Amino acid sequence: MSGALLEVRGLSVVFDGFRALDGVDLTVEQGELRFLIGPNGAGKTTLVDVITGLTRPASGSVRFEGADLVGRKEHEIVRSGVGRTFQTSVVFEELTVVENLDLAASFRRPLWSLARRRRGVSEAVAAAMETTGLDLLADRPAGVLSHGQRQWLEIGMLIAQRPRLLLLDEPVAGMSAEERLRTGELLTEIARDHTVVVIEHDMDFLRRYASQVTVLHEGKVLVEGSVDQVRADPRVQEVYLGRAEERSTGAAAATAGEVK
């Protein structure tokens, strides 16, 4: 696949005089796995909020498949083929895995049909369970899943809606090393059939799985490019990578002090 799926131009967001986004331009091609990084307060989540209709910009445009999303309601944007996750997973704990997925897949059905008992598992739900590796947990309540499994379930709920663009906000936050590895494999698999934009802070995860990276800083696009290009950019090292390394070094020193 080729061609721009998402085009953001001149996007600005102002909160009480503070410019959370300041003239952001962003193009995401079809079939791309794009990582969006930057220090806290850079505007990453605000950008996703605008794309999904949660926040209205002061100026600029957001075009998805050529149609402007600005001014459209959240549910309309979802129906157009844009799905997102949040930093905190949102699943129905009392429902089973398959029931959560079925509910997500039913968003296009008329309200009256939701009261009818479903017979069997739909193709979309079955595919989501297989892709996320949750098929063996289909009848388990979501409330008893591990943190990583809950995140995979939420990603599966997006897949079941069959979006063309997935926006994932820090999908590996709080995960174990094994869960991060599985999530990276999952994102790579999903990107074969979808366009995926990932907000992330885990630099090891970024180095392992990212191809194209956009760095935001103070509401503006600082640099874009491959992982190697971004890591080598002195501006990125100054405002982001350097800070991350300082935190890691500080944490290591503190741990060493405790061992002594």
Rank of each mutant, 00 (worst) to 15 (best):
T214G: 05
I155R: 04
A20L: 08
V125K: 03
I77H: 09
Q87P: 01
R63C: 03
E238V: 02
P171H: 02
G83P: 00
K73D: 14
R119S: 13
E94G: 07
V28P: 03
S80E: 13
R19L: 08
E218K: 14
E224W: 04
L47R: 04
D68N: 12
T96Y: 06
A210Y: 06
G174N: 10
S80Q: 14
D202V: 04
F107H: 07
M1P: 12
E258H: 13
R150G: 01
A105K: 10
T88K: 09
R119F: 09
R119N: 13
V28E: 00
G174S: 04
P234W: 06
L222E: 09
S2K: 10
T27H: 08
S80A: 15
L137N: 08
F86C: 03
W112E: 07
N100H: 11
P163C: 15
L134S: 03
D102S: 15
V215W: 06
S122L: 12
E178W: 05
V230T: 06
V259C: 02
G43I: 11
D102F: 01
D25I: 12
L241W: 03
S248N: 13
V13Q: 08
F205L: 13
H217G: 01
L168Y: 09
D68R: 06
R72K: 12
I77R: 09
H75R: 12
P234C: 10
A252N: 14
D25Y: 09
P39E: 10
S80W: 13
P234N: 09
A142E: 07
E123I: 03
T55S: 14
T27P: 01
T255D: 14
R34W: 07
A254L: 15
V197R: 00
V48G: 14
V97H: 08
A42D: 02
Y240G: 05
P110R: 07
V28D: 05
A105H: 14
K220P: 03
E99Y: 10
L103W: 00
S226T: 14
K220Q: 15
S226K: 01
E178G: 08
K220C: 15
S59M: 04
A104T: 05
V62D: 00
T183V: 12
T96S: 13
P163L: 10
V98G: 10
G31V: 12
